[in-house]
Design a protein around this nucleic acid. Structure first.
Lengths: 205, 205
DNA sequence: TTATAATTCCTAACGGCGTTAACTATGACG
DNA sequence: CGTCATAGTTAACGCCGTTAGGAATTATAA
């Protein structure tokens, strides 16, 4: 076994430790404490070492954003196991807001305008895909034909973010925001069912 | 006329010039360029002078946030002149998103988690009050009795913010976001009309 | 084994940030 | 005219992200 593989393994390991340290600082002390020097201290290195693993701070933060979306994705998948299509939607809404409440600083960087818009869209894609799947199965279950599916998804996604923001910006408590999100989702879905030209369930069913 | 009043007037004047300079830097070059030294240079003073008018940078930024909400309020009042109650609501939605698109950096600081939550809520109150008035007149016009009025307002406010954020975070263009906001509002209002126990218009009308 | 090459890691430093201290003028008031 | 407050300055402190340069360690080749 060549030593180069071990070296690469060690490199990858330190890189991972840096990410974990950064994540820990962010979640426990907030974005203001997330400095290169602080992270380096926590992994027992000097600051410049960080730059052997990340081009700059933004690149490191992007890793945290990606991690946050993976975490959110796993919680979404869990909530998506709810069999009832309607409850599944409200549970996703509740889960989204809960995530923002349980990981406020992570949620903050996940939606920080400072991180590149393209990158943010890229890492958020899998989570949005889950939302798309859920909306698809919901509309199928209710024989609702959405005029514009992507538009409907964007509305849901934006609404969830907005109501979660009410919580993490301090306008309302997280419990209330969860309830708001559920109600908002219910109302929107009801609206979509209503505006569909009242076609009674087709004969095939 | 004592000289002290002139001095006070001069003080107030430079204070105002500082705010205007800060606003100009923010709107034209973004939040990264908004530094004390830069603002001081623009008003042709040295940096410490700023601290004779504001306790710290946060206090100055708060003035910008307040200004932003005043501006938004005036645009809201304008949109609120629309006579049709339903169109009035969608116009508010569209106007909110348009504001975010036309003043992206201002919109950013207005919803910056770094500014104190209480202060932010305080300066945003008048704008939300307009939304409340509009929702009241809408529900009156349609004989809709909202189960929880404040909750309905919070949902609308959160939804508007969320969809506007889709635009300023780069997920969708501003034109599309405006359309999304209108559609979202229409759908929510339709949902509220629908879920109201279908009481035909009472005899009094 | 030893000379050479590569890699790792550190200290020191740069420029910029928010902010404060200490000092110098300038203009008002007894 | 002397005194005193006030406005304004420069210099500095301790942070920040980031880079340069060198020392020490480790791998490779003769």
């Amino acid at each position: 076994m060549p030593t180069s593989t071990r070296r690469a393994r060690e490199r990858a390991n330190t890189r991972e430790r840096i990410i974990e340290a950064a994540l820990h600082v962010l979640e426990t002390e907030g974005i203001a404490a997330l400095t290169i020097r602080r992270i380096a201290t926590d992994v027992e290195y000097s600051a410049p070492v960080v730059y052997q693993h990340f081009a700059n701070k933004d690149a490191l933060v992007l890793e945290l954003v990606a991690h946050g979306h993976r975490l959110m994705l796993s919680e979404f998948r869990q909530a998506a196991q709810e069999p009832d299509t309607d409850r599944r939607m409200t549970r996703i809404a509740s889960q989204y807001v809960r995530f923002a409440g349980e990981h406020p600083h992570l949620f903050q960087v996940m939606n920080d305008p400072m991180v590149d818009a393209d990158e943010r869209r890229r890492v958020a894609e899998p989570v949005i895909d889950v939302l798309k799947e859920l909306l698809t199965s919901w509309s199928d279950a209710h024989d609702v034909v959405l005029a514009d599916f992507d538009q409907a998804c964007e509305i849901l996604w934006g609404t969830l973010y907005g109501i979660a923001s009410l919580s993490y910006l301090g306008s309302v408590g997280n419990d209330r925001a969860r309830y708001l999100a559920e109600q908002a989702l219910r109302t929107i879905l009801l609206g979509w069912r209503t505006e569909t030209p009242a076609n009674g369930r087709p004969a095939s069913s």
